[in-house]
Design a protein around this nucleic acid. Structure first.
Lengths: 313, 313
DNA sequence: TAAAAATACTCCATAGGTATTTTAT
DNA sequence: ATAAAATACCTATGGAGTATTTTTA
């Protein structure tokens, strides 16, 4: 198949002008050049595209169909080139992002919203994955950006910390409250927690923090939304383990306690493939993530009166 | 926009092979030719389409999008050329046909069915039009084929008779029956007739035939289907004027009488624009119409015992 | 060292231009 | 006589080939 876009342009111009001279002008070529091009094209099609008569050029069915569909093809190909050009400038394309619960609970929604606004041509594909899954997917180039829980040691990836998240204890403010209150002292309390279906890794992490403290929590309620969990705690139905950033919501009737237990750490980093450092979309997304990194949560909680650092005893 | 289909072919081949040498083989060009083509294309896109590293070629977003949409464009353009080729052979395209009631009642449905079977790629556009409307539409090339009532005198058109249709009188077989029965003798009878909404021209023609005979028919019933009209006549509810070909249905309890009145003639011809005589689809359709022309209705009715020729008195 | 892409250089096919002819009214 | 497309002929651009170099693991 040797028909080129220039041939389609010629047929479309001719279909509109129905006059070789004027169509040639529009195409910025001479009339004989257009005539030759059309004759050659007619040879490939196997029949006339136009009926030429004195002062009267008319399309045949073959010509009408070629012009009609040719118009679409030309528009499409122009749009395709434009799309590719925008992709080269990092303004279009696809960005595949892996994330876990801790990042989605934090600042990620806001980053996504702003990135989508500033890059309306970019499709964002989000995949909920555990950190090990993300590492493999990043290495295999199945995702472009990951939000992983630190530490990560993989020299195929570039990893930049963005959030010093931790688990904290959430207690109803009517509960007994003194300096000695810690995770161990609430071991017998009813626990409320983010549903495992919502985030297996977070759920499992919370359980493992309890296990490290020496007990298995008695879970009386699961909820799909962090805000629901905090409301139930505030209503006095039990205690919970939540990401520290939840304290920023200032839920009524809830107090927070830091956990010094090392396992309570849940530091989040943004990661990408080493070779993708120059990919425009990856660069731009990472820039936006790092610019959006909230002021240290640790600092802000230190200023809040209802959160104190305690041991796990 | 100077991107050609050959460029898209190159990107698609490269996207699949991810290897300049093998992609060049597949495209039946040398490796340097492909390299040059891609570099030039990258210049037009404004950025790299592929990341070349030792033993490792990978698409950028710009390249991925160009290859993905390019594949569609190549398929589309191939299909477009194929369609145009079929149109040049008279196997595809559009055929716009004008027709009136007398042709649609006769053999046209059968011709359409067979034409559609033998030309599955051809779209048939049917428009119900009066003969004068058809003549104008044919001259203005708004329809390709017309079925017109003769006589037609228009030297822009080619006209070929295909059906010697006439109006005949349909009478219930229980009615009095003798050689003198004609249109005038049933002037006082109730008339049943094809609904005017179904065919104004036929309806008006029937009325005008009565007027030429000297009376206005008392219409007691209209029906949308010719078969319904005949059934009502057979049931003794009245008399009717119908196309002569209706006699071929041999409806029970109905007798037919020829009308010698000249105005009762309703000869049908197929017509097309003089300049369209070489258009493949027009040629083929006309051939099929003329081959399908039924044996003279006049002859067949002459052999049928229940139809006699009479005057209009 | 070897695989793979880029570069250098030559060639020629072909698209396009100008001048002219043909055709139809 | 004239408008419009086709033809003749020439030119030159640029795409393709071969040979070679560069790059990188």
């Amino acid at each position: 198949m040797d028909v080129e876009l220039a041939d389609l342009e010629a047929v479309v111009a001719l279909a509109e002008a129905l006059h070789f001279g004027r169509a040639a002008d529009r195409l910025h070529v001479s009339q004989p050049a257009l005539s030759k091009r059309i004759r050659k094209l007619e040879g490939r099609i196997g029949g006339p595209l136009l009926v030429r008569r004195y002062r009267d050029v008319r399309l045949t069915e073959a010509g009408r169909l070629l012009a009609e569909r040719g118009r679409h093809l030309l528009r499409e190909s122009e749009a395709t080139v434009a799309l590719s050009q925008r992709a080269a400038r990092g303004e279009a394309g696809r960005l595949r992002i892996g994330f876990g619960i801790a990042s989605i609970l934090g600042f990620l929604p806001d980053v996504l919203l702003r990135f989508r606004r500033s890059h309306p041509g970019v499709q964002l594909h989000l995949r909920d994955m555990s950190t090990p899954e993300q590492i493999e997917a990043l290495a295999a180039r199945e995702v472009d950006i990951g939000f992983v829980r630190l530490p990560v040691a993989d020299d195929r990836l570039v990893v930049r910390p963005v959030l010093d998240e931790r688990l904290v204890l959430a207690i109803g403010s009517r509960s007994p409250w003194n300096a000695r209150i810690g995770l161990r002292s609430v071991a017998a309390e009813p626990f409320i927690i983010i549903a495992r279906a919502r985030s297996a890794s977070f759920y499992d992490h919370a359980i493992s923090v309890c296990a490290a403290t020496g007990f298995a929590p008695r879970i009386v309620q699961e909820a799909n939304e962090l805000f629901t969990v905090l409301s139930l705690v505030g209503a006095g139905l039990g205690v919970s383990l939540v990401p520290r950033s939840a304290a920023l919501m200032h839920p009524p009737g809830v107090r927070f306690r830091e956990l010094t237990l090392p396992q309570a750490a849940w530091d989040i980093a943004v990661a990408w493939h080493r070779d993708a450092s120059t990919v425009p979309l990856v660069q731009r997304f990472v820039e936006m993530v790092r610019a959006a990194r909230p002021p240290s949560v640790k600092r802000r909680l230190a200023a809040a009166p209802r959160t104190r650092s305690v041991g796990t005893r």
